[in-house]
Amino acid sequence: MIRDITIGQYYPVDSPIHRLDPRVKLAGTMLFLISLFVFSGYFGYVIATVFVGAVIKISKVPFRYIVRGLKPVLILLLFTLLFNVFLTREGTELFSWGIIHIYDQGLITAGLMAVRLVLLVLGTSLMTFTTTPNQLTDGLEKGLRGLKKIKVPVHEIAMMMSIALRFIPILIEETDKIMKAQQARGADFESGKLIQRAKALVPLLVPLVVSAFRRANDLALAMEARCYHGGDGRTKMKPLKYKGRDAVAYLILFGYLGLVIGSGFLPL
């Protein structure tokens, strides 16, 4: 039931991509997103697709698993396709019926747009598939620590992010438990009209909010008991350190970016 929702969607296998420093993956994802918007020729699409394909292959995450992550963007994809097909008025007309006109340029733009979107989602989800939420926030904290000079509370933001991420599965489990407990007392969450259903949520939401506050309280106490006082002077058990493979990954990334930008100058 509700337990089947996976958030963070980390896929636990050991691969060269999993072992990379999270900062490399964060920067890589950013670079990849930028690269998707700089190229214009067909060659750029080929390079980007090959790049994503290679990373998927190296990451050892099953392709089926990754494709499942595309489901939520399916509707967005469909809309983009339809808008591009029906609203583009360029090139030669292929088909017209009433107010509907379809041009060949529209089909091409729609197709390319769809590829771009799919690559975008694949690229970003690859990062979450291969990096645990904790590594991600660690990477973010270290990667953005320069911003501290202009008084951005980097550590606090990272801490809030990791706490929020950590609490998602806990709250899902809690929801499941309270739902079952109320169902055991005859509560009905699945039938009835809209207003009845909204009312039926009260026995679920009140205990859930109460428990969220209780947990927040406990956590604050536990942190204080461990002398937590913010980020200054705090050391890490596993400090992030760049290794040889991270340098290689950066080289590959910039090579890829160069190729993509270079492909724009090709006569295609």
């Binding site: 079952k180 055991a184 005859g186 509560a187």
Partner: peptide
């Protein structure tokens, strides 16, 4: 359930206990 007090939600004790029979 375990820790059943975590499922209490009503404004008074009587109302909370009445939740089950009311649903019946």
């Amino acid at each position: 359930f375990q820790y059943p007090e975590h499922q209490l939600f009503e404004t008074t004790v009587v109302k909370d206990v009445a939740f089950g029979p009311k649903n019946m």
